[in-house]
Design a protein around this nucleic acid. Structure first.
Lengths: 237, 237
DNA sequence: CGGCAAGTTGAGCCAGGTCAACTCCGGTGG
DNA sequence: CCACCGGAGTTGACCTGGCTCAACTTGCCG
């Protein structure tokens, strides 16, 4: 049996990107996993929830941005987490907790992995296991940092943190780049950092007026004063 | 070689509690891990940070409550996460992110595991690995839920969520018990839910006045109306 | 029975929520 | 090519929940 990379994986960032999960698999493992998995394109608003998540609770993000959304009884909506390229969303066991949906915030490519094969590969391939573990830990740290941001920071500080986070998480061609893409709409950003869209707008204006950053367009900003942005995010002045 | 459980483990909740990590180890594994680990008692304010965490980034909580604290530039302090009995705190890789400390909020017993042995056991014992994974996922979900609570809820709702979370995480003798221990001081609670101590006090008063709960003493409450508490936590009325 | 830390209560103030009006922009059809 | 439309983002005016600061009460330990 010749084992060659499945076609669909050849062009997938999860396979091409050196330190993501799929890149660590042997060809055989990749084939097995691929056979039992579904890859899918999603567009803004497409949702995975309920049944779909119970049966296929593991989703790998190849491109785009997904959000985990919670809905409160009175209709307040909030984005609990953002997932981007390389994240492996493992929602097994979340059913015990609050109901929530996985919603794409734009065009995105995902791969819905078979839990069985995923688990099997994870325990037989330590290299792959490390990758998963490290990604999961990163998600935990991100969630923890985010909850700190949400609990103590004020709006401007939250926005600054968010921009820095965007810059940091960008599939950084040149890391430390000062041109950063804001990969979500204003209203999604607002839901993620827990303020109103109006407030986001005002805070962006504030940063622009102070010369901290400039807009190329709505979704691309140039950071003129990284140090100051970091100070703001960290609560100085 | 006779393999018997190390003395120190015999009385440790991590070993006795059926579904926690240590309980899943073979005696040999337990002995190996124990040899290279330090167990320690901590009291209120005792801190693990910097060097100590870099070299020994994995801490298992046997009893008590630990907190992960972030400090902002202007002195605002905030508790990012609470760890209780059975949690395995794996801080490997957190150094890339914000500096933070692990601080005990009262008397607690911890076991600082050797990363090497921990990793080795995890990959050779799938049963143990499952336990670790599941705990880490729970931590992630908790952090995500918490960040939702922080970002969109108001003080009363946060407090209600916190009480429910306490009740849920209690090493529940009888689950669903309406008597719940608040395992932290008011000021720590306030830092965790991101409000001022004064506000915590006012919200507790509110819940008491409405008959939702009653105090046995400062740290033990009886929930008289679980349904209402849940509604409040979820933002109804 | 002090003495101190922890928690509570009160009064005033401000960051950000709310609501409404307005602008901007891309798509569509006459 | 322009007029129109609808959704996204912005701006302004007002209001309120929770922060602040200060005084007071309670509980715990020697």
């Amino acid at each position: 049996m010749t084992s060659s990379v499945p076609n669909i994986c050849k062009s997938c960032s999860l396979h091409c990107d050196h330190d993501s999960f799929c890149a660590r698999l042997t060809n055989d493992e990749l084939i097995q996993l691929n056979e039992k998995s579904h890859s899918a394109s999603m567009k803004r608003g497409d949702t995975l929830s309920g049944e779909a998540l119970t049966q296929w609770p593991i989703v790998a993000v190849s491109s785009g941005v997904l959000s985990l959304q919670h809905l409160m009884a009175d209709g307040r909506k909030s984005i609990a987490a953002l997932y981007m390229q390389g994240d492996i969303i493992d929602l097994r066991g979340i059913a015990n907790r609050n109901r929530c949906n996985l919603i794409s915030l734009g065009n995105s490519e995902v791969c819905r992995l078979s839990p069985d094969i995923f688990e099997r590969v994870a325990s037989s391939n330590p290299n792959a296991q490390n990758s998963i573990w490290s990604n999961l830990r990163q998600q935990t740290f991100r969630a923890i940092d985010h909850s700190v941001d949400m609990s103590k920071k004020q709006a401007l500080e939250k926005l600054a943190s968010f921009i820095i986070e965007c810059n940091y998480r960008e599939t950084s061609t040149a890391s430390g780049s000062v041109v950063t893409k804001i990969p979500v709409r204003r209203v999604d950003l607002a839901e993620y950092i827990g303020v109103q869209p109006e407030t986001v707008s005002r805070c962006f204006k504030n940063l622009k007026d102070r010369g901290v950053l400039a807009f190329k367009n709505l979704s691309v900003v140039t950071i003129h004063d990284v140090a100051l942005l970091q100070k703001i995010a960290n609560g100085e002045k």
